[in-house]
Amino acid sequence: MDIIFFRVALVVYLLSALGYLGSLYTRRVLVAKVSTWVLFSAFAFHTVFFAMRCIKTGQNPVVSFHEMLSFFAWAMAGIYLAFQLKTKTRVLGAFVSPVSFLLMIAASKDMAGYVSIPAALQSNLVAIHVILAVTGEALFALATCAGAMYLIQEGLLKNKKVSSFSKVLPSLTDLDRINHICLMLGFSLLTLGILVGSIWARSVWGSLWQWDPKQTWTLAAWFAYAVLLHQRLAMGWKGHKAALFTLLAFAALLISLVLTSLLFVTAHRFI
């Protein structure tokens, strides 16, 4: 039953992605407005799916790698929608909704069945660890979207190519602000997530840190974000440099998220 909501959400994510891309193509704001509502309904279906899973299994809904991808998509859409309330940045949806949709496609490969959680992972700490970390990472993904869009808009303005395309893109200041807020929130959540994770690890493996490939890459990404945040807050980095660095830091994070799960043997593996 709950899987139906997942599939409906997947299709509606696709619709909103198409809508947003269509609004970019036609340069019509109305199309983007409608797409925002479509994205909101996808998010609602997706939320129902998570709620039903929780009730049915009575456990943490984010255990497997595929569940993590689906949760990532959900968090990104949710955070974007929250921003949408405050700022006029509809076009950012054209970056967010396709990513959500692709994550959902990847997640759908193995979503129908239920994963029974091994005893070692049946802890509230694990659930908190995963949710904090993935939400933090979703915020970073959004910061990256804003950064990429910043670089595009900046390129257009610097090269004096102010066309109707640059008109639909948000203003530089708005994009920089979103980038900044996402970085701050994302960094706090990821840091908390890592701390919770290591507390749990100590209780199970006896040590706080295992230098497992996934942990190492995550730490590298965490440092990259720490440096970026330091530059932003202390050195007053804004705009171009900050946006570019956001993209680099996210590349490191992607390696830790995806590649380590696929390429390395890691103790930090989802089932």
């Binding site: 006029k88 808009q153 303005l157 102010v162 640059s166 008109k167 893109l169 948000p170 203003s171 530089l172 200041t173 708005d174």
Partner: peptide, 9 residues
């Protein structure tokens, strides 16, 4: 003014 909006919002 239009440009300023693109830059500053």
């Amino acid at each position: 003014v239009e440009l300023a909006k693109k830059i500053f919002g």
